[in-house]
Amino acid sequence: MSAQLLIVDDSTSMRQMVAFALSSAGYAVHEAEDGQAALEKAQGQKFDAVVTDVNMPRMDGIELIRQLRQLPAYKFTPLLMLTTESGADKKQEGRAAGATGWLVKPFEPAQLVATVGKVLG
């Protein structure tokens, strides 16, 4: 069975680009439009990895990662940030929250697929 991935971004076009890259690589992709929606989905289903934007309404990506890390099912799940934020302080905040890795937009689809493959082992 292919890995179940959750893509979280408030931009529909960005979600579609990420979903296309990852589903083309054989992953089963699920989408959420913000951190709150993603958290609700994650509480109902176990995803093998989560790729989230940082800046979103209702709940941002860093808070989402914090919340996911508190769920027993997501203690060791790869949680990747995909964002236009490339500042060291944001990266540090993401790492402190429990982010596994960081990808900067605009992203190369091949790089995204390789990174997801690497964190899934």
Score class of each variant (00 low, 15 high):
Ser2Glu: 06
Ala3Asn: 08
Ala3Val: 03
Ala3Arg: 10
Leu5Phe: 10
Leu5Asp: 09
Ile7Ala: 14
Ile7Gln: 09
Ile7Tyr: 05
Val8Ile: 11
Val8Cys: 13
Asp9Arg: 05
Asp10Met: 08
Ser11Ala: 14
Thr12Met: 15
Thr12His: 14
Thr12Pro: 15
Ser13Trp: 07
Met14Gln: 09
Arg15Ile: 13
Arg15Phe: 13
Gln16Trp: 14
Val18Gly: 14
Ala19Ser: 15
Ala19Tyr: 08
Ala19Cys: 13
Phe20Asp: 07
Phe20Lys: 07
Leu22Phe: 08
Leu22His: 06
Ser23Phe: 07
Ser24His: 08
Ser24Leu: 07
Ala25Phe: 00
Gly26Leu: 04
Tyr27Thr: 04
Tyr27Cys: 03
Ala28Ser: 11
Ala28Gly: 08
Val29Arg: 05
His30Met: 10
Glu31Asn: 03
Ala32Tyr: 03
Ala32His: 07
Glu33Cys: 14
Asp34Met: 12
Gly35Ile: 02
Ala37Asn: 08
Ala37Gln: 08
Leu39Arg: 10
Leu39Lys: 11
Leu39Glu: 09
Lys41His: 07
Lys41Arg: 13
Gln43Glu: 15
Gly44Pro: 12
Gln45Ile: 08
Phe47Met: 12
Phe47Gly: 12
Phe47Lys: 12
Asp48Ala: 01
Asp48Pro: 01
Ala49Val: 00
Ala49Trp: 00
Thr52Asn: 04
Asp53Glu: 15
Asp53Arg: 10
Val54Trp: 00
Val54Gln: 02
Asn55His: 10
Asn55Met: 13
Asn55Ala: 09
Asn55Cys: 13
Met56Asp: 03
Pro57Glu: 00
Pro57Gln: 04
Arg58Lys: 10
Arg58Met: 09
Met59Lys: 15
Met59His: 14
Gly61Lys: 07
Gly61Ala: 10
Ile62Gly: 09
Glu63Lys: 15
Glu63Arg: 15
Glu63Trp: 07
Leu64Phe: 11
Ile65Val: 15
Ile65Phe: 12
Leu68Glu: 03
Arg69Pro: 11
Gln70Cys: 05
Gln70Lys: 14
Gln70Glu: 13
Gln70Met: 10
Gln70Tyr: 08
Leu71Phe: 08
Ala73Gly: 11
Tyr74Arg: 07
Tyr74His: 10
Thr77His: 01
Thr77Gly: 04
Pro78Ile: 02
Pro78Leu: 00
Met81Ile: 15
Met81Asn: 00
Met81Cys: 11
Leu82Cys: 04
Thr83Gly: 07
Thr83Gln: 03
Ser86Asp: 10
Gly87His: 11
Gly87Pro: 00
Ala88Pro: 02
Ala88Gly: 01
Asp89Tyr: 06
Asp89Arg: 06
Lys90Ile: 12
Lys91Ala: 01
Gln92Glu: 14
Glu93Trp: 03
Glu93Val: 04
Gly94His: 04
Arg95Ala: 13
Arg95Gly: 11
Arg95Tyr: 15
Ala96Lys: 12
Ala96Trp: 06
Ala97Gly: 05
Gly98Leu: 06
Gly98Cys: 09
Gly98Thr: 12
Gly98His: 00
Gly98Ile: 06
Ala99Ser: 11
Ala99Arg: 01
Ala99Phe: 01
Gly101Phe: 02
Val104Gly: 03
Lys105Arg: 14
Pro106Tyr: 01
Pro106Asp: 01
Phe107Gly: 00
Glu108Lys: 06
Glu108Ile: 04
Glu108Thr: 04
Glu108Ala: 09
Pro109Ile: 10
Ala110Arg: 13
Gln111Arg: 11
Ala114Leu: 05
Val116His: 05
Val119Asp: 02
Val119Ile: 08
Leu120Thr: 05
Leu120Lys: 04
